[in-house]
Nucleic acid binder design. Sequence first.
RNA 1: GCGCCUAUAGCUCAGUGGAUAGAGCACUGGCCUCCGGAGCCAGGAGCGCAGGUUCGAGUCCUGCUAGGCGCGCCA
Length: 549
Amino acid sequence: MLRSHLTRLLEQAASGLQKDGRWPEGALPAFSVEISDDPSHGHLAANWPLVLARTLKRPPKQVAAELMAAVQVDPWFDHIEVAGAGFLNAFLAPQACAAAIEAVEAAGADYGKETAGSGERILVEFVSANPTGPLNVVSARAAAYGDALASLLTAAGHQVWREFYVNDAGTQVEALGKTVYYWLVKDQQAAVPFPEDGYKGDYVREIAQAFLAERGEQALFGLDQGAAISMLSQFAVDLIGRWRERDLLAYGVRFDRYFSEQQDLRAAGRVEAALAELERQGVLYSQDGARFMRTTAFGDDKDRVVVRKDNTPTYFAADVAYHWDKYSRGFDRLIDVLGPDHHGYLGRMRAAVAATGKPAESFEVVLVQWIRLLRQGELVAMSKREGDFVPIADFLKEVGVDSARFTFLLRSPDSPLDFDLALAVSESQENPVYYVQYAHARIASLLRQGAAAGSGDLLLLTEPEELLLARRLLSFPEELTHAAAARAPHHIAHYAMTLAQEFHAFYNRHRVLGVPEPLSLARRRLARAVGSVLKESLALLGVSAPDRM
RNA sequence: GCGCCUAUAGCUCAGUGGAUAGAGCACUGGCCUCCGGAGCCAGGAGCGCAGGUUCGAGUCCUGCUAGGCGCGCCA
């Protein structure tokens, strides 16, 4: 909205020069408009003369002068000057401030958003941790990221579906069932040794106790060990699923669907169907008694087993079926948010997508790096199997939802993150999220005082700090679009920090109340607009914007 | 050995090929008889190493070093 405004203005000038025959016809190279960080460089800086110099075979400064001579007067800009090696620095006028406030007032909480339905149908799969224990704090980062990404994509006009894939089939779940069985029969004649691949966390005993409470000991009567374990596995998975849903809701994450590998894929015959389709395509072959998919034909670095020697389908086979199922539900684009341990898995998944004939770009994977959890500088082990991990519920109790989400979303998903629990708790009052929330609360407090009568005169907003706020507000729509396209919610977190900072600076230097009414009203409208965009930004991140703190 | 991610201030991290590289925390010094001091202003200190592309490189390319993760008929 803001940068494109300047882009258009300059392009019109260039097009005029081309029409007059002073510049050659044809497409001109693209250029960038940036928000200046040095006030002496204006509010915006364009580098077109630098880029054009080569095309036009003239020095950048001369190109700039020619361009400037042709540029039309625009109410948003006080003036535009040539600076440095050939930058164009644009300085905003009060008109722009008025335009910013009116734009935010007109759109409200939808400011900068695309209208729903104009984009793609996108399925975002995230968290999707094995259902063998309570959600680990490690999942908290992925949950915050996936949820915020989904919100961002919605704001960018896409139809977004949040999905959690429950891997409730396979050996890990069986190992969990065995462990529950161990606890149930521990003190009986039928006692078995602790399973070799068993889960050591205390929560497994809780599951055993819950089973006794809900089903009673008699539920196991007459079952052989295998059947009992199978029943216990199912019980455990269901219970853990309920724990997780509860924890995620407390964290502000609501999935549109928990997709069960066992029920929605295997029992529904989707895995066999997918395998049959692969057979039909002739991409399977037998070797060493197993059935392989020729994923190397689609760029993978080796072929992958889809049906084991014992005739059971692999996790990969189920995942092929799962992704095909997603496409069959009409989604244009699939985004998988995975942990970094899955990157070795990408090649075969891309192959699976290629086998559907879907365009390769329609399947995206975001690898969210681990957080390394420390406690007073000591690394906290994170093994679910060893039972040594921090459940998300405990973590949130210590750190708080807003603080946790904001901390995670301030970082790029690519960046490994060290998170010191002791530090996080002791400094929770110093968390950057409070800086942003404080700005919002401050604005709310301002607006509670002194009822506004009339609309004031927005053109009275001429102070440097007011123009900086106008610039920031006007750049929000582009910020949002960019963050969505880059799959980068952390840009929004940084934007909110910057907007809050610029508001605090304004507030400290200028009075909103107690100045002549037309100016006071105008400043209140500016403050309200800032508060509105702060709240919208925080909402995209799943963070609250309190009126009082 | 191969692949992916990472390396920026004392710490945790931003930085769509642009000008003098930023923020929070920590540290130092200032700032409301008045709208919320959870704030503002000022200060010190940094792009792992070596080449290359470019008018211009923290950003792109190559090599190296260090850390994380992966390379299973586990999921």
